[in-house]
Simulated scan of single mutants.
Amino acid sequence: MWRSLASNMLTILVVVLFLLGGVILWGQSQYTSEGPLESAICLRVPSGSNMTKVSRNLQEQGAISSGPLFRIGVRYSEKTDQLKAGSYLVPAGASMDAIVEQITRGGASSCGTEIVYRVGVTRVLAEVRELDPATNRFVERAEFVPGVDEVPAVYEEKKADADTRYRIALAEGVTSWQVVDSLKAMDILDGDPGTRPAEGMLAPDSYEVSPGDNRAEILAEMQERQVLRINAAWENRSDRAAVTSPEEMLILASIIEKETGVAEERRQVASVFTNRLNRGMRLQTDPTVIYGVTKGEGVLGRGLRQSELRRATPWNTYVIEGLPPTPIANPGMASLEAAVDPDQGDYLFFVADGTGGHAFAVTLEEHNRNVAKWREIEAERNSN
């Protein structure tokens, strides 16, 4: 009898262990497999929250099938105490495992409200925008010029929200004075920017910032990125380059940056200046004349006068030989690369073609015809 009872108990234990193993395997499968969420959501995890609150929120929004199973998985993976506050874009079908990884890894929030300070060539613009999870596109809430326009109420409202993200978007071709002046107008930043960085030494890029960040430290990061780009471009220079040092490359790249906003044209423009330098011809480029007038401090806001084209300044390439002594703006990576890897060809001239690009020419006769066409386009536009 005892043997029979022991045998039955052992059988029951095996069955229980088998069922328990099956439950565990099912739970693991549920935890790691595709979730029930049909369309993306923005999950906000406020400061001081916990996994229980998060799991309830996720279950209410249909992102997970079981709050208790979610919490068990979190405990099993030993991430209960690793929850990070923020706003997270949870994609459709995200597994519990993937969601846990998102909200415990932290870093920059991936949805919610973003305030972007766009430092452009003509102005700085602050944008308040919010990501629509359904379309994964940002919806603009407000925009204004800091220090000039009235500050929108939504800007002040979102500044008070701890989950709001901030970014500085530095356009290619801005001057160092413009960057420093723009940072001064950004009221979320602290500290004196210090000495203005040398022209050309700030990398046009996107920079994640936070309220209270120091202006001088942000400028230091911009300089560090530009040094890396300068070194990389110079290391990969071609034997067609006319410049003989990283400093000359930076100067030429800044001129290329100011001459064209068409990415596909940069190496063509670079070839024109390279051919001119190799032949001992003056560069004769208007942006250098403008820099001689403004020193990069603001926008000229009008056409160049004949007296300015003739005036001798260190940057006036209608007057001086070769390159000017300093860059005239902060060039991006594409212009740095173009400066040391120009297109092959014999172009010596270019002029605007009315489409936003340029018409290139080998001979002065051909160039003069292109100039005449451009003047016709200008005259027609001015008459309308």
Rank of each mutant, 00 (worst) to 15 (best):
L10G: 15
L25E: 10
T32S: 09
G35H: 05
P36F: 05
L43T: 05
S55V: 04
L58Q: 07
P68Q: 13
L69G: 10
F70D: 08
S77D: 11
A85Q: 10
A98F: 06
T104L: 03
S109C: 07
V119S: 07
V119I: 15
V128K: 07
D132V: 01
K159L: 14
D163I: 06
R167D: 13
A171N: 09
V174D: 02
D181W: 13
L183R: 08
A185K: 15
M186D: 08
G191W: 10
T195M: 11
E199N: 02
A203K: 09
S210R: 15
I218L: 07
E221D: 15
E224L: 11
R229V: 05
A232Y: 00
S238W: 04
V243D: 04
V243C: 06
E248Q: 13
K258A: 06
E259D: 05
V269M: 01
V269G: 03
L283V: 01
P287G: 12
I290D: 07
T294H: 09
K295V: 11
R302E: 10
R305G: 15
N316P: 08
I320N: 06
A329E: 09
A338L: 00
A339W: 02
D343C: 05
L348S: 01
F360D: 00
A361K: 00
T363H: 03
R369D: 07
K373H: 07
E376P: 08
